[in-house]
Amino acid sequence: MEPRLDHQVSNAVATVVIGNPAKRNAMTAGMWRSLPPLLDGLAADPAVRVLVLTGEGGTFCAGADISSLRGSAAEAQTLAGAAEEALAAFPKPTLAAVRGHCVGGGSQLAAACDLRFAEEGASFGVTPARLGIVYPAASTRRLVSLVGPATTKYLLFSGELVDTERALRCGLVDEVLPEGELDKRVAEFTRILAARSQLTQAAAKEFANGRTDRDAHWAEQARGSDDTAEGVAAFLERRPPRFTWSLPGRG
């Protein structure tokens, strides 16, 4: 089967699946190129409130397809960087569901998600030093924000893989699930995310990602929204809230 990115939307959750099982879901140039427009479409879909990124079968993503580097390593890096930035800029909550190897370009994609849940036995590695590649500045800063400068240097200098225990301890993943429990936990948690205020989530994502110049914008959005009144009413009435705010211009 040809390498591809599959996706489906169910119960407000979009699931994007990296599919290249013959090469442990390594990303080809075509796959890197197709990710940003796919994300744009899902971001604009008002039915989507959460995005999950995962890999087909027992592997998340083993990185870039090395054969693609023989033509132009610079072009491959550019495509991977554009895909990573598109994922990081996705305006709704994103979660990487990781099994097996999450290495190289796979680790870039996982780090670009807001959250990472992993199944026991998964392994993580940032491996440009094995290939003589300069890791992009934006990717390095993103990794530093997750795990700190010391662990970033450990990962980048050595290219060594770390297990889920160390990944959880250093902040590379948020939850580690026993074998067979990852899908259940992801479904449970994304239901929670989809039920929360998209207004709160969108503002929090911008602020957490370093946008400190938009206080006035989000205050205006809050004033024009019914989400606060609905949240308070639902709390007092002991019922689930029905939040209605959605990203402006996206449905």
Rank of each mutant, 00 (worst) to 15 (best):
V98H: 03
A96M: 04
H217Q: 15
T212V: 15
H7I: 01
R166T: 15
V173L: 03
A88H: 13
C113Q: 05
R242H: 15
L131M: 12
I133A: 11
A26T: 13
G100Y: 02
A112V: 07
V126P: 00
H7S: 13
D183W: 04
E206I: 00
F235T: 12
R99W: 00
R24Q: 15
F117Q: 03
R70C: 05
V147S: 05
V48I: 08
M1D: 13
S139G: 14
R191N: 11
V13E: 03
L95P: 05
S10F: 12
E85Q: 15
A83T: 10
S34T: 08
A88M: 13
L35S: 05
L38W: 03
K184Y: 10
I66D: 11
A233T: 09
T28M: 11
A62W: 06
P241C: 07
D65R: 04
R169M: 11
E188P: 00
P248G: 02
S246N: 12
G231C: 06
A22H: 12
W245H: 08
V9T: 07
D6V: 03
G171K: 03
Q221D: 00
T28N: 10
W218V: 02
E75T: 14
F90K: 02
A219R: 14
R239N: 05
S123F: 05
G251P: 02
A97Q: 09
L115S: 12
A44T: 06
R239P: 01
I192N: 08
D174C: 09
V52N: 07
A43I: 07
A167V: 03
N11C: 10
S225K: 11
V232N: 01
A203T: 00
V13I: 10
A233Q: 12
R141C: 09
D45F: 07
S67Q: 13
Q77F: 09
L161I: 03
P240S: 09
E175T: 11
P21G: 10
R242N: 13
L95F: 06
D45Q: 12
A137P: 03
G81C: 11
G231N: 05
A73L: 11
R242M: 12
L172W: 10
A73F: 00
R99N: 01
A118H: 02
A138G: 14
F157E: 15
V17K: 06
A47C: 03
T54R: 15
T190P: 08
A89H: 05
V173T: 07
Q221F: 08
D163N: 15
A203F: 11
L69K: 00
A76Y: 05
L161D: 12
A138K: 15
A150L: 09
I66E: 13
K92L: 15
P241M: 10
G105Y: 03
R33Q: 14
L51I: 01
A138M: 09
G63N: 04
T212M: 14
T78E: 14
A195R: 12
R70S: 12
T28L: 11
A44N: 12
A89G: 07
F157R: 15
